[in-house]
Design a protein around this nucleic acid. Structure first.
Lengths: 346, 346
DNA sequence: ACAAAATATTTACGCGCGGCAAGTTTTTTC
DNA sequence: GAAAAAACTTGCCGCGCGTAAATATTTTGT
């Protein structure tokens, strides 16, 4: 404990005094340690070790035009997929010297707007936003993006935000459809009737397109259900499907892993054997490589997001945007390809 | 759009002017709308509808001794259990007029301390902390709790924090053991050798105690593995266990659901039938009622946390603590009983 | 209608820092 | 070793609001 020096430092003035410098110099140091002479820098850092002073964050932010705050907004944090990607993004932002704050809209569009409104008050340097999608209030989010430098990720809203970084849904679906078709019957496509997320629509279109290209007749299964309890919706939908007996293939491609998790649970409940083996009557594949897809029964064959690329690129884009004064000359959409993860379900 | 009145309000001074009041009066209103006369209150709220002004949050926090900020710190947000409880807590705090901010230590003790250090700068009115547990830096956390009103939840650190709110591990284990024993053989207990979380220790002790009380001989299975990838650790540990063939019961009680998820995956991989049916050779029960436990194969019989009670009580305790000036005369530990959720695995 | 109590307003100061301008010192350059 | 450049100091203002004391106004009770 060499820290607690006798004198308590109350503000930058006092800290400047004990380090033998003037306040403006110390202020410069805190805004950019490299903007001062190496010798004075070491004097300050020596004093820092002795007196552990830290600038008042509220006073700093009050006077600076742009703070070091960055908001990360995801649609539904109880989905481990978003928790994982948020973790990844958080780390990178901290490493870049920013103060990320994580928010979840919990599937609620009103809450999504409240979060953005609250974020405004924090004068953030930038925001990384994964919008709810269909339910989002487009007009209000567009307004927000005009005021605050924002990069969208995961789920795109056409034309909104300075840039979009996400996954290439076509790459996801083409790989899974191609694989399933190569080793057996072409798959039916299993999705919610009114998906919350625009990625779902792109995946369906990619499926239809790909089937058409292969000269195969598609079957899209639309299940009922609202909200973010995808697993339960998938489970119920699967039971309905098997009840109706109108599945025209022995392979199913789920729009996303959470639906697949529910579908696999339904299969288990009905004694339907899923997998590649001779005793199996159904193959199931999906998209996302959800953290739990490794532990379904059977383990889930799925197209994996490139977590690292998406998160690092989203952060890079935001930092570029910030350095560029909050504007890009044109809006880019950067998509990353999927990686097919072969497991036991197909 | 009746909002955008011609004049842009820059600060409270200007807003006070357009509402025909003095700034201190308006300031009083924002700190407590009921502290001004109803007539002046309605004048302010009328002006608010016309000019949408909101006080600068940094200036407010700089001058207030205690802000309305509240930190919520969880050990591992990629675990949907914590995401769920955090969501619950967040909602209640917002309803109480606070500004919650969510942080995850991501299983890393250094990050846990960094978060608390960063929280200090925010002068939070209080903090709700679910510590990492065994890995936490007890001394540093204790220091933090001396400076900032803190209520621990989920995972207790003896004597640290103004209060603890969590679940009664004894109630969890007694219900599951009692149930398993009533309908079949008494269970073995399945856990990590060096659990990260103190609840695990309490559950093991409760298991031993309960078995002893029933005059039964316990078997504790300790599996290897470090970190927060509980599912994978459980899966590997289960395979090892079945390889060794020294399981002395046809029932297993897992320390927590995430281990159980891995164990069930291992059972599926080995063709071991789990459940109550005559064709089943193993029963599995667990603790936590993890959001995913409904969708395991078979669905998991488990002891459920009383999410609502724990989160609402934790928030209530914190608000009480704040109103009490940040100190309690003595530290309370409030535990909530489990609710047994019968599903297919046992 | 009047005094007492409750509530508003004015005035004045402070919070901790950013930022600017002018002057002084130190370092770099050739 | 002198001139130029860079870094530092001093002094001052501003940010937007909290807060306290003194004063003025309104409300309440009788």
């Amino acid at each position: 404990m060499s820290k607690p020096a006798d004198t308590k430092i109350r503000n930058m003035e006092e800290f400047a005094a004990v380090s033998g410098l003037s306040r403006p110099t110390v202020s410069k140091y805190f805004n950019d340690p490299d903007s001062v002479r190496p010798s004075t820098r070491s004097r300050i850092e020596q004093a820092l070790e002795k007196y552990d002073y830290r600038p008042n964050i509220f006073a700093m932010n009050q006077n600076r035009k742009l703070t070091k705050n960055v908001g990360i907004v995801v649609p539904y944090l109880a989905d481990p997929f978003f928790a994982e990607i948020a973790r990844n993004i958080e780390e990178r932002l901290i490493a870049a010297g920013y103060r990320p704050t994580l928010y979840s809209a919990h599937g609620n569009p009103d809450l999504e707007m409240e979060i953005l409104d609250g974020l405004r008050l924090l004068k953030p340097a930038g925001v990384l936003l994964a919008p709810l999608g269909r339910l989002s209030d487009r007009a209000e989010i567009e307004k927000f993006c005009r005021d605050v430098p924002t990069v969208l990720f995961d789920s795109n809203l056409d034309g909104i935000g300075a840039a979009f970084v996400g996954s290439d849904n076509r790459s996801f679906v083409s790989q899974t459809v191609e694989y399933l078709t190569r080793i057996g019957e072409p798959p039916a496509f299993f999705e919610m009737r009114t998906p919350a997320n625009p990625n779902a629509n792109k995946r369906r279109l990619a499926y239809l397109e790909h089937m058409d290209k292969l000269g195969l007749s598609p079957q899209v299964i639309k299940i009922e259900g609202e909200g973010w309890s995808f697993e339960e919706i998938g489970r119920r939908g699967a039971h309905d499907l098997f009840e109706r007996k109108d599945l025209r293939s022995n392979a199913i491609l789920c729009s996303n892993d959470r639906l697949a998790i529910g579908l696999l649970a339904a299969c288990y409940e009905r004694g339907i054997r899923v997998g590649r083996g001779p005793e199996c009557t159904l193959r199931v594949a999906s998209n996302d490589d959800h953290p739990f897809s490794r532990f379904t029964c059977p383990s889930l064959t799925t197209a994996a997001h490139d977590y690292d690329s998406v998160s690092s690129h989203a952060v890079a884009k935001l930092l570029e945007l910030i350095e560029n004064g909050g504007r890009f000359s044109d809006r880019t959409e950067d998509l990353f390809a999927a990686r097919l993860v072969l497991r036991e379900s197909a």
